[in-house]
Design a protein around this nucleic acid. Structure first.
Lengths: 151, 151
DNA sequence: ATAAACCTTAGAGTTATATCAAAGGTCAAG
DNA sequence: CTTGACCTTTGATATAACTCTAAGGTTTAT
């Protein structure tokens, strides 16, 4: 039976974060000492490790909550339930990467245009490019591009 | 001289956002009507366009504030000042992309391991992988990986 | 003249994920 | 028995960039 600081050291999550995850309904300490200290059982610890692993894999706390409820009640769920969450996550990640890649291209274009020298910025081509509205490198998707995939 | 809603339509930023940018010190309406309505001059409008373009290029509002102050006082700054901001941004974007790419790999690995069928998740290999601690695909960089590039 | 559409402000709320602070109770060692 | 490390709770703070609300004043068109 671990105390919270031991579990923190063991899991790589801070005691603060463990309490926060508990408040969020992700984990719990199945026992308390008489004075109210949390005691984590082996099972509790495995759950915390699951959360940590899922977090490292990129899942949000909400998604982890879904995965946990599947884990706790496996025979009422299908593999498809799990892959669905994972696929959606993967799509969101891919979308975010695509956005950032566009931004990277914008920035690289800006940098290419400017020597970066130590002389005055009076004719700095980056400033000029931003004044000329040179943001969108390629995609002219004004449609409903406001998706913004929160990730 | 435009009113705020006209500038909103023109710039693609909402009137709310324009007021928010003003409060943040990025832009202003150089005049007001007797009743207090904002009136934007051509110069004001160019500044708003600059902000919008820079935002679309991926700069944060803080970074845009820096760029604006350079733009307003070009001969007191060098191209290096501008490229420095841009390079740092590019580095942050690259780091974020690298993180997301690792996450993508984790997710793809998880998906590969699971058929995603409609049968019970009792033996779902994704759940099992998360229980086994299969998060980190490659990089074992435990060092100071807590950089977390806010972007 | 009245209704619709527009404008103003200050300030609160949102999202996600923590992180910290305050005020105090508990435990182990010397 | 005291000191220091640890634990508890509630609730505030942080980040970034909005987004919205409330309560009210203005403009324009019919």
């Amino acid at each position: 039976m671990m105390k919270i600081s031991q579990l923190a050291a063991h899991s790589g999550l801070s005691a603060h974060t463990l309490r926060f995850y508990e408040k969020s309904g992700l984990i719990e300490a199945s026992q308390r000492t008489g004075s109210g200290y949390r005691r984590y059982s082996e099972e509790d610890i495995r759950r915390v490790e699951f959360v940590k692993t899922a977090r490292d894999a990129g899942f949000s706390l909400d998604e982890i909550a879904q995965l946990l409820s599947i884990r706790l009640d496996r025979d009422q769920h299908t593999c498809e339930d799990v892959t669905s969450i994972t696929r959606h996550k993967l799509e969101a990640v891919n979308e975010k990467i695509a956005q950032l890649t566009e931004i990277r291209e914008s920035l690289e274009l800006l940098l290419e245009s400017c020597d970066g020298g130590l002389d005055s910025a009076v004719h700095c081509s980056i400033i000029e490019a931003l004044e000329a509205g040179a943001a969108k490198t390629t995609h002219p998707n004004e449609d409903q591009a406001t998706k913004e995939a929160t990730l």
